[in-house]
Amino acid sequence: MTMRQGLAGGLVLVLALMAPLAIQSDFWLGFLITILLFAAMGMAWNILGGYAGQFSFGHAAFFGTGAYATSVLHIALGLNPWLGLLVAAAAGGTMGLLIGYLSFRYGLRGSYFALITLAFAEVLRILANTAGFTGGGVGLYLPLNIGVANMQFAGKAGYYYVALGLALASILIAWRLERSRLGAWLAAIRENEDAARALGVDTFACKLAAIGISGAMTGVGGWFYAHYYLYIDPEIAYGPGVSVEILLVAIVGGLGTVLGPLLGSVALHAAGELAQRLMGDTPGLNLIFYGVLLVVMVRLMPDGLAGLVRRWMRPAGGTQRA
């Protein structure tokens, strides 16, 4: 990290910390919270999809498991929501290891891996709909009980700082990973798994580590969602909507980059908001605009936003990932 980058990062961090003081609007603060939450989960996806090259269509499996773990224990046993964070991370991570063990053990790659993660999320959705302790299709209501100890804040600022913490932590994890041996191994697996194995990389263990970390981080995203909205049901927790949104953020931002998911989350949510404001109140027009914008973004930025930023920084045709 150069001096200049460090300074820029510090400045952004200071601005981010001061945002709630400057932004009086609960809407815009809520908007930033959503951006940060999906940036954190996009980063989680990126560790598996971007760094390790294993595309998942079913990150809802981890999101929902985290959300249900903390909610069920909070309701049934009065588990403190802050402790729930650890439980959600553990639950999401375990689910990651479980799915990863089965998939990687049998050597699934590419679209096969993508589809099996989707199938696991669907299985969990159906189970959550059936099981008694998840409340079935009725969903789970977390009791309203405002208090910092209970992770319920009177204003949005509290939630903002928690979401900011999650996003920063995820960036830090990705940044550390990129510079670690595991990061190098994962990159090798992404580029050519057989070659990596031939060089003595334990590809199975590496991929398992990636999905475990990714699952845990996404589970924490579910934890935040549950305590922020105080309600989850099988469709919210395990539906394909969350999986798609998470992967969109990561891919639009740029695969395998530290800041990509954050950029992607900002761009996608800004696009959604812009679409709604420009297109007015006729149902559907805003989403048509959003869809077109998505296609155009991919057309103009094949390497994601982070790729675009890279090209700007090195105008003389720097290195580009294939």
Binding site: S25, D26, F27, T34, Y229
Partner: peptide, 21 residues
């Protein structure tokens, strides 16, 4: 003042903030 919850609780909650403002 029209608002669209897009069939999602989280979007609905965000729209409430917008309406309030």
């Amino acid at each position: 003042v029209l608002a669209d919850a897009q069939s999602r609780p989280d979007v609905g909650a965000a729209e409430v903030e917008k309406l309030n403002e």
